[in-house]
Simulated assay, not measured.
Amino acid sequence: MSYKNCPNCEKKMDGLLTSRHILSESTTTIINSFHSPKSEAYCNSCGINIIAEKKVLVDSAKASLMSEIETLIGAIPIITIQQPIKWDYRILGLISAQSISGTGFLSELSGSWADFTGGQSSTLANKVSSGEDICKKKLRLTCALHGGNAIIGTDIDYSEVGGGKGMLMVCMAGTAVNVKLNNEDFDSKTERLELLASKVKELNALPNLNHSEYYS
């Protein structure tokens, strides 16, 4: 449909000093999903401003929810068992996480000395432990955002990467599942896992306003 004026802001659509155009129908649908009063169309002048203002609010809400989610994901169990007994669960899919960190000159020196003396390098051990913690956090977050509340069949691997440059890679992979929380194994975690699921649902309900097509 051709418009002489924007149905929303009523500004002229053509003229010597204007470059206004009507945004796409899909963008109009997105705007009308959160803007009131609704309009049959928006021009790039008013529509983009509406989206930009909403995006600030949405990004703030997302950041707040992600912060809450990260405080709750510790309740998600990570186990190596493939089929836990008495768990009634739905498989969501394979998830993985990686951590890559430099061992550093002092770490290499410490490791070489420990190797020479037959001892253990606490510096390198801490690097490995830190890599594991990072992977666990990433794995739990991915699981939660996929609607899961447990990770089974978990495997962990270690390797050196970077062609001898002292880069340590820790990889973890497992299967994200959604477990019915009427199981005694989850008694102490049920409340936190239910709250986690609620926060993820709120996050997923927020509109995605990052697509560049909305602004054209």
Rank of each mutant, 00 (worst) to 15 (best):
A63K: 13
W87F: 13
K86Q: 11
P37K: 02
L17A: 12
A197V: 06
E108D: 11
N49D: 13
F116N: 08
R140W: 06
N183P: 06
S19Y: 09
K4P: 00
D155Y: 08
N5P: 00
S24K: 10
N44W: 05
I69E: 04
S129W: 05
A176R: 03
I73W: 02
I156H: 03
L195Y: 05
N182G: 14
L94H: 15
I91F: 07
P37D: 02
K62S: 11
R90H: 12
E191I: 10
A173E: 11
N49H: 11
F105P: 09
C9E: 02
K38T: 09
W113M: 14
A63S: 14
I22G: 00
K12W: 02
G102E: 10
G163L: 06
L145F: 11
K189S: 14
L209F: 08
S121Y: 04
V161P: 01
E68A: 06
R192D: 15
I76S: 02
K138L: 11
L72R: 05
K55Q: 14
G102Y: 05
S60E: 13
L196F: 06
R140L: 08
R140C: 05
I156V: 14
Y158I: 13
M66W: 07
L206Q: 07
W113R: 14
L23S: 02
K55C: 02
P77R: 05
K189E: 11
N44S: 07
N44H: 06
L92F: 09
C9G: 04
E191A: 15
Y214H: 12
I69T: 06
M172S: 04
K180L: 11
L209G: 03
T29F: 03
M172C: 08
L16R: 08
G147M: 08
V58S: 02
S33A: 12
I31H: 00
I31P: 00
S121P: 04
P37Y: 01
D115Q: 12
